[in-house]
């Protein structure tokens, strides 16, 4: 599926004293199978934008199009379009409610009108996708699982609806390093499906660099840039303007280039490996 946003505006508290423009004239396209990360400081409009992608919020003006069709029309067809987009909120494990893991995951597909049998098949599949073995965990209470496991079950609940666009709002926030790695591995596996487009909101720039085809940078409700990780993080002026801290490797290399004249012509690096490579190359160049 191809998702386009056209000149989207959104204002919270319209006509009230605390009226704030959350999104201003945002336009972009996510191609089928693409991985796009939304980044920006707290309050820049990332989550608001995410909630527009599946019609949870309605724009003041502008359109959200799936394969050229508006998802906000009041027609059954538009509703069907919205069902093809799955949104996983922040801290989705707080939304688990059923007695067993399997029942919880089946809630979504059943709500879409799937038969019991079909919902079960989809849910078992979704649980396997998030590395939760349905035979071991299916009949357990979701509340007995670890934080990382709970979160993966909650994500499976959305995957069971078989979305073509999956939106993950800060999927690793608040997890310990192990829980974080589990989610990261899961996202890496999901990413291999060429039909599935993924949008991830994240403050972890190292993850963003590792996963994204493109990065969408928001600041005060405006789209500052949509580009590759290199294009976004390599642009020092843009980073300063948006108040975003680039991945640790990128900031280190930049500071090194500024502070130490020997490294002044060091090329930007986004990952620790790339930074080590660049620094080593510069240091050893002289001895070759």
């Amino acid at each position: 599926m191809r998702l386009s946003i056209e000149n989207l505006y959104h204002t919270y508290g319209k006509g009230l004293a605390f009226e704030t423009a959350a999104l201003k004239d945002v336009s972009f396209t996510i191609e089928e199978g693409e991985f796009v990360s939304f980044i920006g400081s707290t309050g820049c409009g990332k989550s608001t934008l995410a909630q527009h992608l599946n019609g949870l919020l309605k724009p003041d003006s502008g359109r959200v199009l799936v394969d050229g069709k508006d998802i906000n029309e009041k027609t059954p067809e538009a509703m069907a379009l919205r069902h093809r987009i799955g949104l996983v909120f922040q801290y989705p494990e707080y939304q688990l409610f059923e007695e067993t893991v399997l029942k919880d995951v089946m809630f979504g597909p059943k709500n879409l009108g799937c038969s019991e049998e079909d919902a079960l098949r989809r849910s078992r599949g979704a649980l396997s996708l998030v590395s939760i073995d349905p035979d071991i965990f299916g009949q357990r209470s979701p509340f007995e699982l670890s934080g990382g496991q709970k979160r993966r079950v909650a994500i499976a609940g959305v995957l069971a609806m078989e979305p073509e666009l999956l939106i993950l709002d800060e999927p690793t926030a608040g997890l310990d390093p192990q829980g974080h790695d589990e989610i990261l591995d899961m996202v890496l596996a999901l990413r291999k499906n060429p039909k599935l487009s993924i949008v991830m909101i994240s403050h972890n720039m190292a993850d963003v660099v590792e996963l994204s085809d493109k990065i969408l940078l928001l600041s005060h409700g405006e789209l500052l840039k949509l580009g590759t990780p290199q294009e976004v993080f390599g642009d020092a002026e843009l980073m300063a303007r948006s108040g975003i801290l680039p991945p640790p490797a990128a900031s280190f290399v930049r500071r090194l280039a500024e502070k130490n004249s020997f490294f002044s012509s060091l090329s930007p690096a986004l990952t620790t490996e790339a930074a080590a490579e660049e620094i080593a190359k510069a240091l050893q160049g002289k001895f070759e």
């Binding site: 020997f262 490294f263 002044s264 012509s265 060091l266 510069a282 160049g285 002289k286 001895f287 070759e288």
Partner: peptide, 10 residues
């Protein structure tokens, strides 16, 4: 040492 880019290989 001089700037990496400008260093003369010895």
């Amino acid at each position: 040492r001089k700037t990496a880019g400008e260093a003369v290989p010895c």
